[in-house]
Design a protein around this nucleic acid. Structure first.
Lengths: 110, 110
DNA sequence: GCTGACTGCAACCCTGGAGTTGCAGGAGAT
DNA sequence: ATCTCCTGCAACTCCAGGGTTGCAGTCAGC
């Protein structure tokens, strides 16, 4: 799929407060699903589902560590999303400027 | 509320594909809810609700124009979000680097 | 004055997904 | 060898929210 079509999906993944809590914890360092469940008020299974979502959009990467699986937050993915959003925001602004320019020009050189 | 607490809310607003379609249209220029309903396969009321959500997080601004209300896409808001996300992504990366550094140091100077 | 079009509000359905519990399998530690 | 703990899968509940229809108000144009 195109990068544009992925935008709403990644944003949706970031839209859940529980997932943000997970990401915040992972930002401090890699953790397993069980470890996250111990410091959060939700079950391990619920956290597992959230990690699946985050993994599918590339915000998190699983890493086998002995018998447990730790998850690592992928900062690069967040950076890529940020660049995309910034690009779009700028395009809106320039488009708006052009429109206002046209509206205020009293005598178009047609 | 703090800027950090607003992040998941704004992302959730961006998480719906219908809202992205709306924003894409508004990116081309201001439009009213009715006008949007004419070029999209959903009812005006549904679009109105989405516009409410987008307005609440500041991604869109209503503007009275005669008897109708046109909505303008706010690029600055998207830019602000992008900067926030980029900042967080970078912090994850540096944190990870420090952790790996410590893990690979065979003899910590303790 | 009438008509047409746009807005705002309210009630209603229905699906998705966030969360739970329960259980079975498998790798590490003792 | 056993025990423990972490993982994966499945079924189930429950509610938020995305979408719809219907109606009432109101302002512009004829």
């Amino acid at each position: 799929m195109t990068a544009a079509a992925a935008l709403p999906v990644v944003c949706a993944a970031l839209g859940d407060p529980t997932r943000w809590t997970i990401l915040t914890h992972l930002g401090e360092g890699p953790m397993s699903a069980s470890a996250l469940a111990k410091v959060m008020p939700v079950s391990r299974q619920a956290i597992g589902k959230h990690l699946d979502v985050l993994r599918e959009v590339g915000l998190v990467t699983p890493e086998q560590r002995g018998r447990e699986v730790v998850y690592v937050a992928v900062g690069a993915k967040l950076g890529a999303l940020a660049r995309e959003l910034d690009r779009i925001g700028r395009s809106w602004e320039t488009r708006l400027l052009r429109i206002k320019e046209l509206a205020e020009r009293p005598d178009p050189p047609a």
